[in-house]
Structures are given as C-alpha cells and as structure tokens.
C-alpha cells in the first residue's frame, strides 16, 4: 500500500497542480492571474512527462562508460522544446493583455464585459 502511494504520488501532485491552474483560469477575473494559472497548468504537464521518463537508479541520458541504466531521453526532448515555446506564447498572451489594457483601461474580465454590454 505504501509502495503504491509513493509510486503514484508524483502523478497525483501533477494532477493537483493541474487542477489548481485550471481553477485559477476559470474562477479568477484578472487576466495576468489567468495567464499565471495557465503557466501552472503547463508546468504540471511538464512534471507528468518527466515523471514518466524517470527510471529508478537511472542516470541522466548522457552516454558514459560503465553506466547501464539511463532515463528515457524522448520526453526530455519534447518538454525542452515545449518550455521555450511556452515562454514565447506567454509573451504573446502578455502582449495581448497590454493591448487590452490600452483599449479598455482595465484587465478585469467583468469590467471588460460591462463595457461591451455583453455580460
């Protein structure tokens, strides 16, 4: 039982973080905070992938003589590029927030809806 919990603890924390990020995105009105929620969501996905790539007592995937067991390099590659693309898209989202602030004078979702008469 204890082994089972320890073996799945990483997945559960990743899901917990994912849900915290999700909750921030759907329940908070401040656009900057929403972007941070999305980023937390993103980091939780990174955690899930890296958790899957880990091998017990394995080494980092750099071939060295005398080492037999390595972690799985493929998720590392996927996540490495995902991190850099993630910051580029975050920058794009922040740029949109700046334009929204310039156009509406606020970054609170409710007030933007009020100005649009669409709530």
């Amino acid at each position: 039982m204890m082994d089972y919990i320890i073996g799945h603890y990483n997945y559960w924390i990743a899901i917990f973080l994912m849900m915290v990020g999700f909750y921030i995105v759907i329940s908070r009105g401040n656009l900057v905070k929403k972007i941070i929620g999305l980023n937390i969501f993103q980091v939780s996905v990174f955690l899930l992938y890296i958790t899957m790539s880990t091998v017990k007592d394995g080494a980092a995937p750099i071939i060295t003589e005398g080492v037999k067991l390595y972690s799985n390099p493929l998720p590392h590659v996927l996540i490495l590029t995902a991190i850099v693309v993630g910051v580029a898209t975050t920058a794009l989202a922040l740029a949109l927030v700046i334009r929204i602030k310039e156009a509406y004078g606020t970054i609170e979702e409710d007030e933007i809806h009020e100005q649009d008469h669409s709530l």
Partner: peptide
C-alpha cells in the same frame, strides 16, 4: 533565433 526572439520580445515590452 531563440536569443534574438527573446531580445525582441523584451525590447518590445520594455520599449512600450
């Protein structure tokens, strides 16, 4: 590419 795009993004944010 990564270096210059990061710089461009930063310049755009700071220059605004």
């Amino acid at each position: 590419t990564v270096c210059s795009v990061m710089l461009l993004i930063f310049f755009a944010f700071a220059g605004r």
